[in-house]
Design a protein around this nucleic acid. Structure first.
Lengths: 163, 163
DNA sequence: ATTTACAGGACCTAATTGGTCCGATATCTT
DNA sequence: AAGATATCGGACCAATTAGGTCCTGTAAAT
């Protein structure tokens, strides 16, 4: 359905929550699950993935927990998505070259790579800081992604028409 | 994995093939499946979806088949994707408002809507014509989606790093 | 009337996702 | 040193979704 998975969505919520705290303190999985109202085992799993990807740093043992590895402004959305559901790629041949039998005589591969690049670039420009402080950042944010005024309106009407 | 489904991919290939023909003639499902080297039943199913969405027109009976409903230049990529896998929406609350329990106190909903709008807008700007004639259209196409020179390069390195 | 080809589903299988749980290891406190 | 706390890594399961096939009905041409 061209959607991000639920774990990714959860992951963003947790990261945003961590970013809003602002403190460099580490928070344990149970606490984060409670704060975000998400199922604890899932949150724990997500935190591990984000740590492995280098977006969080973990501290083991008593008084352990997780904290942001960098400042929110330096964590692009695309990295969070990549960490939680693998490489961002619109088509199969983008992420796994060689697995498509039609690749040799495919007429649309090259443009798809560019479309993918455009989506990728858009997601790379948005950072965790933009998500965590929506009202503060929304002004510059909109212009950042190169979206003209009526883009959202048109998008919404497109979706409505298709249902 | 933040990918479009395989049927959508196939659908684009079929549409591009039709666009390349250029003639307004209708081509039947079997013929299109052969030309594109894709499984016939799947192609047939895809053609029906695209027809229902108004992107193709069908002609029944002997000598029947499918043809483009409009000129390739007037068929945006986002419509093809929408036709084949439902409304484009990054998160659940984008496509189905009200189904997320956290919606009321969600801190990231609004920015996600904008990100979604940006992706949506990018996909709305690319038309079937851009996909069907890649080399002709690649010049203006790149500038069209607002992607600067090194965007693809950075995207690729991001993906590599994450695996 | 027969043939051709689309329309609309039902249906099955395989893969992915969402979610839980457990043993091992690291760290802090007492 | 001992115990409590928390992450680490992975196994595991249920439910959903995707990929793909097939069948019956209907419209159009010969």
């Amino acid at each position: 359905m061209f959607r991000i998975s639920r774990v990714t969505d959860y992951g963003i919520v947790v990261m945003a929550h961590l970013a809003e705290r602002g403190d460099g303190d580490s928070h344990n999985a149970r606490e984060l699950a409670e704060d975000t109202q998400l199922p604890a085992p899932v949150v724990s799993k997500i935190l591990k993935s984000l740590t492995r990807a280098g977006l969080l740093v973990s501290q083991r043992g008593s008084k352990g927990g997780y904290s942001l590895a960098r400042s929110p402004r330096e964590i692009p959305v695309v990295e969070m998505i990549t960490a939680l559901e693998g490489p961002v790629g619109i088509t199969e041949c983008t992420t796994h070259p060689g697995t498509c039998a039609q690749e040799a005589n495919c007429q649309v591969r090259d443009p798809w790579q560019r479309i993918n690049g455009a989506v990728h670039a858009a997601l790379a420009k948005i950072t965790l800081a933009d998500l965590a402080k929506p009202f503060e950042a929304s002004g510059p944010f909109v212009s950042l992604v190169g979206m003209e005024g009526d883009a959202l309106g048109r998008a919404a009407s497109d979706e409505r028409r298709s249902e």
